[in-house]
Write a protein that binds this DNA or RNA. Sequence first.
DNA 1: CGGACCACCTA
DNA 2: GTAGGTGGTCCGG
Length: 948
Amino acid sequence: MSDQKRLFLVDAYALIFRGYYAFIKNPRINSKGEDTSAIMGFMNSLLDVIKRERPDHLAVCFDKGGSADRVEMFEAYKANRDETPEGIKTAVPYIYEILKAMHIPIMVKEGFEADDVIGTLSRQAEKEGYKVFMVTPDKDFAQLVTDNIFMYRPVFGGGYETWGIPEVKKKFEVDNPLQVIDFLGMMGDASDNIPGLPGVGEKTAKKFINQFGSMEGLLENTDQLKGKMKEKVEANSELGLLSKKLATIMLDVPVDFDAKDFELDHPDIEKVKEIFQNLEFRRLTDNFLKTFSQEASTSASTENTTKKEVPKAASKEQKSAGAGQFSLFGGDDSPKTETVSEFTRKTAETTTHFYQSIAPGMATQLFVKNLLNQSSVCFDTETTGLNPLTAELVGIAFSWEAGKGFYMPFPEDRNEAQDLIEILRPFFESETIEKIGQNLKYDIKVLAKYNIEVKGKLFDTMLAHYLINPDMRHNMDVLAETYLNYTPISITELIGKKGKNQLSMREVPIEKQTEYAVEDADITLQLKEHFEKELGEANTQKLFNDIEIPLLRVLASMELEGINLDKDFLSSLSEALNNDIANLEKSIFEAAGEEFNIASPKQLGVILFEKMKLVDKPKKTKTGQYSTAEDVLSYLAKDHKIIQDILEYRGLAKLKSTYVDALPLQVEDSTGRVHTDYIQTVAATGRLSSNNPNLQNIPIRTERGRQVRKAFIPRNEEYTLLAADYSQIELRIIAALSEEETMIEAFKNGEDIHASTASRVFNVPLTEVTREQRSNAKTVNFGIIYGVSAFGLSNQTDLSRSEAKELIDTYYETYPKLKAYMSKQVDFARDNGYVQTVLGRRRYLKDINSRNAVVRGAAERNAVNAPIQGSAADIIKIAMIRIHEKLTAGNYKSKMLLQVHDELVFDIYKPELETMKTLIKTEMEKAYQLSVPLDVDLDIGDNWLEAH
DNA sequence: CGGACCACCTA
DNA sequence: GTAGGTGGTCCGG
């Protein structure tokens, strides 16, 4: 670092947006319901820059009122931008307040963008001999770079890179940074709505710059171009020049750089602390104090605290290591600048702990004796992979006292491992010792493969947190950081990043395994203490102990069971599909006059709307491409054979790639069956989700797709499949909850509910309801559950907007209590901030009082839908638990295999069929008592299609 | 190779 | 209009 004075100019909105979206999957919401992600993200970046660079001069620049000049030049300028998210709008005043308290100058000029302000200031400061750093991720700034002006770009995964002239030259393939303007002008910028030259993308723009040097150079020499490109460029020369102007950052904004004003001053620490405390920023406060209390330690390079950025990638719930799934750092791993040290978080290195591994022999005996004396123990298994069906135990960690724990390594030899686990059997199978864990379903499945059953009371921290805060993510690292202010050792630190060099947990030295594994158990134990208190309130405790925890064992056993798949059938289906797809492809290419990739919406859009010009004004997607979505194309289908073919092609291609070809690959070698993974903690309403593979979205609507269901078959000839599904469960729930008697009566009388609705709404006798009337009534019935609008309804039916509105109005008149119920839910949400299901499962709706009508509308629909969808989920969960209990208690051979939201699928041992029919129907129908009877249909067959 | 985006499958 | 998951393309690190 030279002695030259350094000025840092921060592009506020760019960092605010970046911060906001960094937390988008896990927004920071404080107890007042405020989304503080944007503030937190921005402040993290700002403090980070200060801590790293210790600038002597610094200012933060904002946009104000947009660029009047640019809008004058080009009306559409930035017009396409999505509305600023609510969470950002509310953040800005806070950020102003904080900057003021920090005594950091805020630069805004009405009618100018931050780019222009930064551009102008940087030139002025350069003249006064400063080295200027523009803190922004936005590539547009590259045009401003000089010998003394640099871009200081945050990079994904942490750290920064500095772009000087050489970097800009290389990145944009230009001779000098000013050509970046020509480059941007040529290729355009969708987010800024700079049109650019049609047909010119990044590649072509670079080529042109290289060839002609500038936009003007290109336009003067179009004779050197040929074909379509020549025509296009010539026809759009004005657009090109305009684009260039729009891309040019102004250097003459009426602002003055006064060195004195920009000196980085001491902040008003008390004031900042107060604001942070109001926002409930605990760690950020620590970070702030640390940043400003420590003497300017010129660089951050000596720091060696934590290494974690936002754990974006950490997939699913992580359990042990193995052939590995997730890397904690995205992007490349060459540390241009070292990793961000985010907060002063505790880690194993900074916390006193006592983690010990247990040697074989005598020590094991002593340990187990001690273990059996405990009343509640947290454990965590470490394995060679993430698939519990094939994973081998590498070790098990135990902890029953915060900060302490033990690790028992397992031998690689399977027989020896079995011998060792036998010593632990009394512990796992003890009915009196409570077992605590994070994602116990995984551990239970692993242990089941060693023939060990985990008995006794369970506490799963992941499930607990799902009930406490369903909108957050629940992986252990996030929980530890949020609730314990602690950063656990990352799995990548142990086994490396995903890829060929990744180790198996088995290859990690025992000492490190011990530190990592026991830490997990220790942390989980501490989280349990925390969550147990929070679960105490409301009905959550009951929901936890009576539903989610028992369900965990049920799911584990369903997943272990798997379902039999007829691979041969699928492969013949695949061949047939291949044939049809090839024929369609041929016919499409003929109609289009050229070959292209039909699966690429981008290419398809160009063919249909530019080449064939099937529509005058094609609909665009939000990224500016032509929309080729199904509903858009359907309109055209009757007039154009090519559209019909394309839709059919896409349908068949999806069928083939997602189901017919993918499913056989998911058959587990060791069992010959397909084992899906049910996830209990993702759906905000309380539903389950299924993946690897997803068996909750197997086709049924089209004849062709339905065939896939034939591939799901009983385990052998002694078995048959049985599907049991709740009939209209969601409508029954809304009828019951709203106490709408007309509808309740219809259900009690066993009427066809859609026909019954049609008869009332269209005022015709039940026997005279037409197909169309019934179909429209059905659409409204479903619409009610989702939160109807006339717009949505008319889109789904042949009705016009006003007809749709009329239908909805009549519907509400027919069922007045339904309407009242819906309003009541919305009011409840407004007053309480959440809605709940019949079992008290909550969904929090932070946007219910938003000033933004669109955002608020979505929350209102959630307020209506969540209790209904969620109650249905509660009810089937109860049924599953009871059925599983009876199947186990009765030692039946029949097994429950799948759950598809309102349907359960069983492998039925034929001699048990009659018993099972009664048992299943009874348990499902009496799972929960409503003022409307629940009705379950049963079907039996030699495959899933027949059983439906 | 991972993420964004689009399209499409289910209840 | 609600709630999910997967596969393909395309682009950038």
